[in-house]
Design a protein around this nucleic acid. Structure first.
Length: 574
RNA sequence: CGGGGUGUAGCUCAGCCUGGUAGAGCGCUGCCUUCGGGAGGCAGAGGUCGUAGGUUCAAAUCCUGUCUCCCCGACCA
């Protein structure tokens, strides 16, 4: 490609609305343009990257026996009513009507449609297992789209759905998909991590997320420094520090703590050990009452774990202050488990603390040296906190480290959630009708592009991994439009690269070198060759990798070999 | 949806408080100079000031409605 024939629309200034680097760089490099909130056009340069992602996904899915199909993005309401999700999904589902006032939605996902296809087409266990997938545009009417393509309303996703006559078969395909995803992310050339995950609203049991590691990631993931254990912090099991409680010490006393309402106040003013200060949080119950949650002062509540507990309202809601005061008789800064009188869950770590400090449920009073069993009821233990860096790994090997990640892939075992309600059955060996089990496997294709940038950028712009770069090589001729010598050499090199199948961008624009270099660095072309009169006169060309400190001058005679070496791997692979 | 902001040239923004009829930098077009890290000069093009109404002799500026977009919270690939 010649730059003069391409559309490079780079921006020198950073657009104000862009909050995170990937969004800024995608706009500055001219990969995307915003059309409306959460809706973006992919410009030619961005589309080249998007296609790279798609193709890798497609190749690996095909290799694993996936069958590509393409389902409509507009879907009839009837299907969604049948699965029950027409009502469940809420405003995130964009609904529309046609001219006959029939209801439709824009597909946020395709379980309903695929199940419908399946039940019409597949009758026998002999046709199983199957794994259908598509790479297609989805629409979710996000409450608040942000971060550009990272959380947009319209986005492209690869979604795959597998069907099975048995759990064993589902497990097999699930494991295969896990491996396939690992292969895909390996090929992307991104640092990633597969973690056990909460299956969320989509339902099902076993589930893993694939995260691209980046400090700006929205998710925290915990993994063992000594084993394979890795889980989303939402999910990671918090192991109590000990298995038996120490004997109580001194007798409980009530003390005056006017003006001390937070854990910090207590540790500052009373010189107390934060691990001995228990905090009591009050959330709404599912029957209009209250539930108390007790945690160690240095621990954080984990809403995802907590909302699964009996009587706790889901989604989790902190109770209103007035209601707490009314029901419990004190303000939130003075609450504690002693004599509280409502359902109380005590975090497993907090349940082992002896001689603790807690609110007395009387304003401006706290107890010290309180003890479970002696001063209040034996605690109902639950795992309700988020793990912290340094906690023991739940598998007993090593301790946990915490990194941030961007969720770009998610695999689920759906089981029979949809196949049951929508009657996706086949006949088994005995001619009996059995409900199929399903798996579902997603990759956020557009999000992968953003995540790749989030992980690979510097002050000059993007640096793409070779596998995702819109162009592999930039040829930057200095004075292309003035110097016959340079033009000739550049054209020859360009033709040679095309011949070799290298994706090359020849910058033949009449630009100053600085502008040209900056553009190529901004858009992240991994390799750059500069040709100039000065160099050619000395039989030299200049090479610089996007991530290299310095450029190097190399002998022109070695250029063919150099190209061979540089691009041998990609040529074999693609 | 709740809270906070914003809207003026393609982009980043000034002007608004204190009404008098629109500006800068970058980008764009042409010419000249420069030519290895976002050059300089000259000459240009480009804006119903988000939108509808109101106040006023006069509105980008004041008032009201409305829309857009962004930020903070719950959701997710």
């Amino acid at each position: 490609m010649k730059a003069s024939c391409f559309h490079l629309s780079t921006l020198k200034e950073t657009p104000v609305d862009a909050e995170i680097v990937s969004h800024q760089l995608m706009l500055r490099a001219g990969l995307i343009r915003r059309l409306a909130s959460g809706i973006y056009s992919w410009m030619p340069l961005g589309l080249r990257v998007l296609r790279k992602v798609e193709n890798i996904v497609r190749e690996e899915m095909d290799k694993s026996g996936g069958l590509e199909l393409l389902m409509p993005s507009v879907q009839p309401a009837e299907l969604w009513q049948e699965s029950g999700r027409w009502d469940q999904f809420g405003p995130e589902l964009l609904r529309l009507q046609d001219r006959h006032q029939r209801n439709y939605c824009l597909g946020p996902t395709h379980e309903e449609v695929i199940v419908d296809i399946f039940r019409r087409d597949i009758k026998s266990y002999k046709q199983l297992p199957v794994n259908f997938y598509q790479i297609q545009t989805k629409f979710r009417d996000e409450i608040r789209p942000r971060f550009g393509v990272m959380r947009s309303r319209e986005f492209i996703m690869k979604d795959a759905y597998s069907f099975h006559a048995s759990q064993e078969s589902l497990q097999q395909t699930y494991d295969l998909m896990y491996q396939t995803y690992s292969n895909i992310f390996d090929r992307f050339g991104l640092a990633y991590r597969a973690v056990s995950a909460d299956s969320g609203s989509i339902g099902g049991s076993t589930s893993h997320e694939f995260h691209v590691l980046a400090d700006s990631g929205e998710d925290a993931i915990a993994f063992s420094d000594q084993s394979d254990y890795a889980a989303n912090v939402e999910m990671a099991v918090a192991i109590p520090p000990q298995t038996e409680r120490d004997q109580p010490g001194a007798a409980m006393e009530i003390i005056d703590t006017s003006g001390l309402y937070t854990i910090e106040d207590l540790t500052d003013k009373l010189d107390a050990d934060i691990k001995k200060c228990l905090k009591t949080l009050i959330v709404d119950s599912d029957d209009d009452g209250l539930v108390a949650l007790v945690l160690r002062g240095d621990h954080e509540l984990n809403p995802v774990k907590t909302e699964k507990l009996l009587r706790v309202a889901s989604p989790l809601r902190m109770a209103e202050r007035e209601k707490i005061k009314r029901v419990l008789g004190s303000d939130i800064g003075s609450l504690g488990p002693v004599g509280l009188g409502i359902t109380t869950y005590v975090d497993s770590s907090a349940g082992f603390v002896r001689d603790f400090i807690c609110g007395a449920n009387i304003n401006d009073k706290h107890y010290i040296n309180a003890n479970w069993g002696r001063d209040c009821e034996e605690p109902t233990i639950a795992d309700i906190r988020s793990v912290q860096e340094g906690d023991p790994s739940p598998d007993g090997q090593g301790s946990l480290k915490i990194l941030r990640g961007i969720e770009v892939g998610h695999i689920f075992q759906l089981g029979q959630k949809y196949s049951e309600t929508m009657q996706a059955t086949v006949l088994d060996v005995n001619g009996k009708s059995v409900v199929t089990s399903m798996g579902c496997y997603g990759i956020g294709v557009t999000r992968v592009v953003a995540a790749a940038i989030e992980q690979n950028n510097d002050e000059r712009g993007i640096f793409w991994p070779d596998s995702l770069a819109p162009f592999q090589l930039a040829i930057c001729p200095l004075n292309y439009n003035k110097s016959e010598q340079v033009k000739h050499a550049a054209d020859k090199l360009y033709a040679d690269c095309l011949q070799r199948g290298i994706e090359v961008l020849l910058d033949d624009r009449p630009l100053r070198p600085g502008v040209m270099f900056s553009d190529m660095e901004l858009i992240g072309v991994p390799h750059r060759i500069v040709l100039s009169d000065r160099g050619l006169n000395a039989d030299l060309f200049e090479y610089k990798g996007r991530r290299d400190e310095n450029s190097q001058d190399l002998a022109l005679t070695n250029l063919p070999d150099f190209l061979n070496q540089l691009f041998s791997q990609e040529c074999v692979r693609d």
